[in-house]
Design a protein around this nucleic acid. Structure first.
Lengths: 191, 191
DNA sequence: GTGATTTGTTTACATATGTAAATGAATAGT
DNA sequence: ACTATTCATTTACATATGTAAACAAATCAC
């Protein structure tokens, strides 16, 4: 809970009263390795705060092949944000790669808190803006850089994660096959 | 200005008083074909509402090659949103592909209006959320679909635009070369 | 500890797409 | 109207990356 407060304070200032009402909405929860927080096709209802553990977010194409698009490493928020906003089914899955500690709240409850507390609504705005910036950063990487470079950045952005999860998840995140990642690794280690 | 109001009402409800304060911040402006609204390396200061015209948003890689990432077709907001949020220089350029009619406001002025008017802050939150969803939609297209499919979607999403701008801008948006786009077009027309 | 499963690497091959250059068509400028 | 540019298509070729399969290494289950 201290991590939660610290993370939140990084967004914007919130009064003690708002904060206590806000945190009251969150209940502790766990995920075991392999368990899903959200699944495609379902309507997202909850937002989660990941205290510890690793979660992968991924899409599936029409052939059922999976494409990782993000790794969440606590502390951070998780959830089917696009689905929460649009009230359309998730297109994305979020699955625990390790056991995870969470705090979970109903998004609808948070929305109604926004009505009474402008400082929370501001936090919500700032959070949405941060998500936007994250996405743009990722977009730039996908469009402008080749897989070698993206691999380099992945290792900086998620230090240690490489040791924690299978290579093929990383390859998928980079948009290449495990074969190709292996080639890249070989090339990089030989210089 | 009526388009502006209509577009804004689509986001969330705003009181007349908030609306008149908000619109007072916007001044009319024009761009001629080829002119830039924002350029990479510069700090974004303004947000624009594009009433009419077409603007392309693009990145440049280290070799100076350009990659289109979006076409704005009024009515919609434009601007270096990530730079406005982070106060870091733009990584993106936005350039008029046709002559454009705009309304332009200082983003800082809008931020301070947020303080006094929660309904405007809410509109800001909703707008940020919409931008996020747009980006996620685009991300899914980039990751999950091949260029053929993206071309198809481009034609649905921006009807008529194909006739208005050079092919190489479209190819760049699709993440392929004009050569490859030409091959795709040939393939599609032959069935 | 031993066998079974999962994961990573390598090979050979196929294929999609980029590059460069030539040609043709369309557009713009004077 | 004529010329010069810009733009789109096509060709030939190079290359990066995917696919499939075999193998090796690591990890897990019992």
């Amino acid at each position: 809970m201290e991590d939660f407060k610290k993370f939140f304070d990084g967004l914007t200032e919130v009064s003690d009263q708002s904060w206590s009402k806000f945190t009251a909405l969150f209940k502790p929860d766990q995920l075991v390795k392999g368990e899903y927080f959200i699944s495609e096709g379902q309507l997202a209802k909850n937002i989660g705060f990941l205290s510890s553990g690793v979660i992968r977010a991924f899409y599936r194409n029409s052939e059922g092949e999976e494409y990782n698009k993000h790794f969440f490493i606590g502390p951070c928020f998780i959830g089917g944000y696009a689905s929460l906003i649009t009230q359309k089914p998730n297109q994305i899955n979020q699955q625990a790669l390790t056991s995870c500690e969470l705090l979970v709240a109903k998004y609808a409850d948070i929305l109604s808190l926004y009505q009474e507390h402008q400082d929370l609504e501001r936090a919500g705005r700032v959070l949405a803006e941060q998500f936007f910036v994250q996405k743009e950063t990722r977009e730039i990487q996908l469009v402008l850089m080749d897989a070698d470079k993206r691999y380099e950045i992945f290792r900086e952005e998620f230090p240690g994660l490489e040791q924690l999860i299978p290579q093929y998840h990383i390859a998928s995140f980079l948009g290449i096959t495990p074969t190709q990642l292996s080639r890249i690794r070989k090339k990089m280690s030989s210089k």
